[in-house]
Amino acid sequence: MTTTVERPRAKVPAAQRTPRRPGRFRKHLWSYLFLVPMVLLFGGFTVWPLMASWWYSFFDWDGVGTPSNWVGFANFAEVLRADAFWRAFWHSLVFSLAAIFVELPLALVLAILLNNSWLRFRNLYRLVLFLPVVATTAVIGIVIAILLDPAGGLVNRILLDTGLVDQPVNFLGSTSTALPTLLSIDVWKGFGITLIYWLAALQTVPKELQEAAEIDGAGFWRALRFVTLPVVMPIAIVILLLVFQRSLNTFDLVRAVTEGGPDYATDVVPTYIYRFAFDPSLQAPRYGFASAAGVVFGLLTLVVTLLQAPFLRRRLDGGRR
């Protein structure tokens, strides 16, 4: 895990070969100085709230004052026993699978295409693909509801007119189609972000290399495999992590489009936690339980990530060779 983004060891001596005047210590001193602001902010705004929420997860606490009603592992036991939690976890996982195996590669292909200086209007294309990212989610929710309405919505009208279906499809209302529909909307909404990250990553590919590949007619796939991917690999792994994490935390869109329904067919962990811990109709928020559910969710995804780590490492090393 910790080594996924590390530089190959072979390079280390190269850097050490230049022990200049101030020596190694001075060099590292600077590096540590450079890390200070990040460590302070990271410690204060990420690690500390995180530790606090671990602490809260052992209490029955409503979020006001100091937690005092220690319940041990009761919150965790409740989370682990809840079928609804596991159902939500599975849906969250499906969201991340869709993001990793559909959104990520598609965005890379389009980024490569839109990175070509010979493509006219490429700035316009980029803007268009990016716009859904900044469209207000709540408004998108209602637009989608109107477009996908089984009773007279545009999409169903087109499907019926072209004879692709003979019965209107109840996209959001049927337990079998709601999740795939929501996944597609999620890919649509988040695609621009991934695209932009890929575009940034592609800027690290030296132009000479790209041009060389093009001139010797290496072919798209060969160029991708032997020129582009190896160079962008360190950033690609960050993008992968990012997409994975973002897809696990899908919340606004689910709330705006289906609120987890129908019959919880689109319930994800963030909406599950919200419903059980913060719903304004609850008498008091259950921060302790929410924190426990968050911790369990975090640990589970960490395990999933660790399972990917050896694979990532191999890709990284392969890329570097």
Binding site: A145, D149, P150, A151, P168, N170, L172, G173, S174, A178, V257, T258, E259, G261, P262, D263
Partner: peptide, 12 residues
């Protein structure tokens, strides 16, 4: 019943 109610919000 009108199809699609399964995903209606309270103001639909």
């Amino acid at each position: 019943m009108m199809p699609g109610w399964e995903s209606w919000d309270g103001a639909r």
